[in-house]
Amino acid sequence: MTGIVKWFNADKGFGFITPDDGSKDVFVHFSAIQNDGYKSLDEGQKVSFTIESGAKGPAAGNVTSL
């Protein structure tokens, strides 16, 4: 699925993605970002991701920028 990064705190390594389908915002951890180098996201960035079952509920996985 796709969405827009609502916010991401690079110091803490997590944030939230707002899915394009209008569903509830999804937690994203830096370890789910699939790019080389520094793993961070920018507010407003368009991303593709999967929904994984995290310890505290749904979380984004396999996050790639579009």
Rank of each mutant, 00 (worst) to 15 (best):
T2G: 05
T2M: 09
G3V: 01
I4Q: 08
I4L: 08
V5S: 01
K6A: 07
K6T: 06
W7G: 02
W7C: 06
F8K: 01
A10Y: 11
A10D: 08
D11H: 13
D11T: 15
K12A: 09
K12N: 05
G13L: 03
G13P: 00
G13W: 02
F14A: 02
F14R: 02
F14P: 00
F14I: 10
G15A: 02
G15F: 02
I17S: 00
I17N: 00
T18F: 06
T18M: 15
P19F: 04
P19R: 04
D20N: 07
D20R: 04
D20M: 09
D21G: 08
G22H: 08
G22F: 06
G22W: 06
G22E: 05
S23W: 05
S23F: 06
K24L: 10
K24G: 11
V26M: 05
F27R: 03
V28A: 03
V28N: 00
V28W: 02
V28E: 00
H29E: 04
H29L: 05
H29P: 03
F30L: 07
F30R: 12
F30N: 06
S31M: 09
A32P: 02
A32S: 13
A32C: 06
I33P: 02
Q34G: 08
N35E: 11
N35W: 10
N35H: 13
N35P: 07
D36K: 14
G37W: 08
G37I: 10
K39Y: 08
K39M: 09
K39D: 05
S40D: 06
S40T: 13
S40V: 12
S40C: 15
L41G: 01
L41M: 05
L41Q: 01
D42L: 15
D42V: 15
D42F: 15
E43T: 14
E43C: 10
G44I: 02
Q45P: 01
K46D: 04
K46L: 12
V47E: 00
S48Y: 12
S48I: 12
F49S: 00
F49E: 00
T50M: 11
T50P: 01
I51C: 07
E52D: 09
E52R: 11
G54V: 06
G54W: 11
G54A: 10
A55N: 11
K56D: 08
G57Y: 08
P58E: 09
P58I: 12
P58M: 09
A59G: 06
A60I: 03
A60W: 02
G61L: 14
G61F: 14
G61C: 14
G61H: 14
G61P: 02
G61I: 15
G61V: 15
N62E: 08
V63M: 02
V63W: 00
T64F: 11
T64E: 10
S65D: 09
L66A: 08
L66N: 08
L66D: 07
